[in-house]
Amino acid sequence: MSPRAAHRAAVTIVVVATSISVLAVLLILAAWRNDHTIESDMGTATAEVLSAGSLRSAVSFVTPDGITHNPVLGVLYPTKLTAGQRIDVEYARSEPDLVRVAGRDARVAIVPAGSVIVVTWLITLPTLLILRRKSPTRSS
């Protein structure tokens, strides 16, 4: 591999790793923003879990005005839910489709996002070292 190609590959790898890290941090910030929105105008309800997954769980709940809500994006922080389960949820009264499992907040997102960042760089750094070793040095 030529020095120029090795440099391009290294730059590309660093850009991809940095992008993944930035996206993980943005995920945490977005979760914090959603929590802030919910907490600034909070309503509570009991919801039924319609479907459960590790990344998305669908719920249905009724607000005090009698309207049934089934948020399109599901409930925030959906881990360890099962279909048919009844759970307490907290939602933004001004935006009832923004709903989270009661008692959970953005802290739930820190470990997974942090893990993504750590694994990304645990792969990136050795890859960069390998590229550096395989790249011939430029002679002056």
Score class of each variant (00 low, 15 high):
residue 22 V to A: 10
residue 24 A to P: 04
residue 24 A to M: 11
residue 29 L to Q: 11
residue 31 A to V: 08
residue 32 W to Y: 14
residue 32 W to P: 00
residue 32 W to I: 10
residue 32 W to L: 14
residue 33 R to M: 11
residue 34 N to M: 05
residue 35 D to E: 07
residue 36 H to W: 14
residue 38 I to L: 05
residue 40 S to E: 12
residue 40 S to K: 14
residue 42 M to F: 11
residue 46 T to A: 11
residue 47 A to D: 03
residue 47 A to G: 03
residue 47 A to N: 04
residue 48 E to N: 13
residue 48 E to I: 13
residue 49 V to F: 08
residue 50 L to H: 02
residue 52 A to D: 07
residue 52 A to K: 07
residue 54 S to C: 06
residue 55 L to R: 09
residue 56 R to Y: 03
residue 58 A to F: 07
residue 58 A to W: 04
residue 58 A to H: 07
residue 59 V to L: 03
residue 59 V to P: 00
residue 60 S to P: 00
residue 60 S to T: 12
residue 62 V to S: 05
residue 65 D to W: 08
residue 67 I to D: 06
residue 68 T to Q: 13
residue 68 T to W: 07
residue 71 P to A: 04
residue 76 L to R: 09
residue 77 Y to C: 02
residue 80 K to V: 03
residue 80 K to T: 08
residue 82 T to W: 05
residue 82 T to Y: 07
residue 84 G to N: 11
residue 85 Q to P: 02
residue 87 I to W: 11
residue 88 D to L: 15
residue 89 V to P: 00
residue 94 S to I: 00
residue 95 E to Q: 13
residue 96 P to E: 10
residue 96 P to T: 05
residue 96 P to M: 12
residue 97 D to V: 04
residue 97 D to E: 13
residue 97 D to L: 06
residue 98 L to G: 08
residue 102 A to Y: 09
residue 104 R to G: 03
residue 104 R to I: 00
residue 105 D to T: 03
residue 105 D to W: 13
residue 105 D to L: 04
residue 108 V to Q: 10
residue 109 A to S: 14
residue 111 V to F: 02
residue 113 A to Q: 15
residue 113 A to N: 09
residue 117 I to F: 04
residue 118 V to R: 00
residue 118 V to F: 06
residue 119 V to H: 03
residue 120 T to P: 02
residue 121 W to G: 06
